[in-house]
Simulated scan of single mutants.
Amino acid sequence: MPNSPAPAQRHRLYEDLQALLTGTLLVAIGLALFRQAGLMTGGTVGLAFLLHYASGWPFGWLFFAINLPFYLLAWKRMGKRFTLKTLGAVSLLALLSSWLPQWLRFEAVAPLFAALAGGLLLGVGFVILFRHRASLGGLNLLVLLLQERFGWRAGWLQLGLDGAILLAAWPWLDLQRLLLSMLAAAAMNTALAVNHRPGRYMAF
């Protein structure tokens, strides 16, 4: 008789804190590579990058401000625990993005390496956060709400929004960097697809 699967185990507080720190640190390093190479990404991170390139304002504080309207959606859809963890992750990423240039400096980064390594770091960072019921906020919550209300496919909506963000960055990106940004998005989503599948991770 086959063994029954082990029951899901709730993460302890210290495990969640370690995951928030590790996940956001990986994302922050990936974004530092993007910034050094002049690359873009989608989602609320991409919106913050777009405004950062356009205005010169600090990325971290732009990212924090853009996410503020989405917390109400998170509270309604995902509950208090998820919203508070997401607020913690967004706040931590905003701080790390501001502090990291003082701790880590790149003299030169090959754009292709930045796209692949940065995309994979973002993907793994998101996996860690997702497995601990947290996120870096934003547009994914909006597209889920639109899918629920109007029946629009969330995947296609997310793809369209990310594509629009990348195209809006055209004045600050040449064709090579735009294509590399698309490659970075593919690397990130590959890391997510391979490492974040239902049934592979039992804790919550």
Rank of each mutant, 00 (worst) to 15 (best):
L92Y: 07
Q147E: 13
F70M: 10
R10T: 12
F82L: 07
R200M: 11
L129H: 02
A94L: 00
P5T: 03
Q158H: 09
L139K: 01
R153N: 14
L116N: 01
Q102W: 11
L121Q: 09
Y14N: 10
R77H: 09
L121E: 06
R105Q: 15
L39W: 03
L180M: 01
L51P: 10
A19M: 05
K80Q: 15
A54P: 04
P101R: 06
L25D: 13
F64Y: 15
L144R: 01
F82G: 06
A108D: 07
A186G: 10
I66K: 02
P7G: 05
E15R: 10
L146T: 02
L47T: 04
L161R: 11
L73A: 12
F126D: 03
R149N: 01
L161Q: 10
A37P: 02
T86Q: 03
L141H: 04
M202D: 12
H196K: 08
L62C: 10
K85R: 15
Y14V: 10
A89S: 15
P69E: 05
F63M: 03
W152Y: 01
L121G: 07
M40N: 13
W170I: 11
L136M: 13
A114E: 06
G137W: 02
F106C: 01
I29F: 08
G42T: 02
L180K: 01
A94M: 05
A203M: 14
G160Q: 01
A203I: 05
S4H: 15
A94T: 04
A115S: 06
P7L: 00
G163N: 04
V124I: 13
H52E: 11
S91K: 08
P111F: 13
Q158N: 13
P111Y: 11
T44F: 14
L73K: 02
L159Q: 12
G23L: 00
M40H: 10
L26Q: 06
I128V: 13
T83D: 08
G163C: 13
V124M: 12
R133N: 15
R133M: 14
L51A: 12
L84C: 02
P2E: 09
G119N: 03
K85F: 13
L87P: 11
L159N: 12
A115H: 06
L50V: 02
F150T: 10
L167D: 07
L112K: 10
Q147H: 04
Q176V: 09
W170L: 14
L183D: 14
R10C: 06
I66C: 02
L62V: 03
Y14W: 11
N140A: 15
L183S: 15
L116P: 03
R12P: 02
L167H: 09
F64G: 05
